[in-house]
Design a protein around this nucleic acid. Structure first.
Lengths: 175, 175
DNA sequence: TCCTTGTTGTTGAGTGTTCAACCACTATCA
DNA sequence: TGATAGTGGTTGAACACTCAACAACAAGGA
């Protein structure tokens, strides 16, 4: 294993020579670096694991699962493509491709929109609903086991609230 | 915008009929659902933003930047491929592809290993070092602006420690 | 020595995402 | 009504990642 520092390009002796006069460059201190790196590694592993478990048990990726969840919550189990995209913070293009695949798999259907000739509805099919009902067990168990059960309730609450603020601060994309 | 619930497949009236006798299925409660979804959205936006800022300013993705950081910290600015992979929790295959691209761009070099005929060293080139020195400013500014400055110090510390535990609990892959 | 097993790293095919361009349509303003 | 700008959604190519298979070598025992 390697050392746990980061962000500042290096820690060896000759480094200061390579950042001449940049003492005021406001680097992360070692503790901040450690926390940041823990976050990156932890998130990488967590999302990878949840994705893998869904795939192996149900042939569903984590983003696909999220699509099913959002459609299931919507009126008539339907959402406009743009709504669906922004609710997940995905690009329109990505959403189109994802829904196209899921439609080919029979999990969702698409319908043109009467009120707005440009729009399209994505609707959860019965097959999609049934798959969601099954996959939800796997997903929830994973979130508990790998995330919630690893933390104290207050840790988990702090974590969620923190990302609430972070997400709110980062304006949604428009691509 | 849509409602903020999740994980449990739906919230409409007929849902309980669809989960017969599963009151004991241990779903996430509404607050847990909210926290979980905040995390997913926040993380999606944060990583996407940091990646975009690096790309636009330096033509470098966030994973590529992390490669540069790790190599810069290592003795002789070099790491074995497997070490590099595991330090980022990436697969060997992914690391091979990433390094191949970065080698083509002149940012790293690869050398066979004398002690172990199977092994290879990835080494940071001068060009890679120079790019890292530049990109570090962008990256650190982004981490501060979008993450650290949005949180209190104790929130940030809690977040980092939480993911330390989460990451530790999830065994590294072997693929 | 030979055989077996495990490790390191690469490869190419398949899959998912991004990006830029585009068409169809709506909204606004004159 | 016509012109213009903006929005919703799709497309295809380029790019990044996963997965399974593989080649080369190491390690250890018979």
């Amino acid at each position: 294993m390697t050392s746990q520092t980061s962000a500042r390009p290096a820690s060896s002796a000759d480094v200061d020579d390579c950042f001449p006069g940049e003492a005021g460059a406001n680097w992360l201190d070692p503790e901040q670096q450690r926390l940041w790196r823990s976050y990156i590694i932890g998130t990488t592993r967590l999302l990878e694991r949840l994705d893998r478990e869904l795939r192996e048990a149900h042939g569903l990726s984590l983003p696909e699962y999220e699509v099913l969840v959002r459609l299931s919550e919507a009126d008539n189990r339907s959402l406009r493509m743009a709504e669906l995209a922004s609710s997940m913070s995905h690009s329109r293009s990505r959403t189109t491709h994802t829904i196209a695949r899921m439609e080919a798999a029979g999990l969702v259907e698409r319908f043109s929109c009467d009120q707005d000739g440009r729009g399209r509805w994505a609707t959860l099919s019965d097959k999609g609903w049934k798959l969601l009902v099954e996959a939800a067990h796997t997903h929830v168990r994973g979130v508990r086991e790998h995330l919630i059960d690893q933390l104290s309730p207050s840790q988990f609450a702090t974590l969620g609230d923190a990302f609430e603020e972070i997400g709110a601060h980062l304006a949604p994309r428009t691509t």
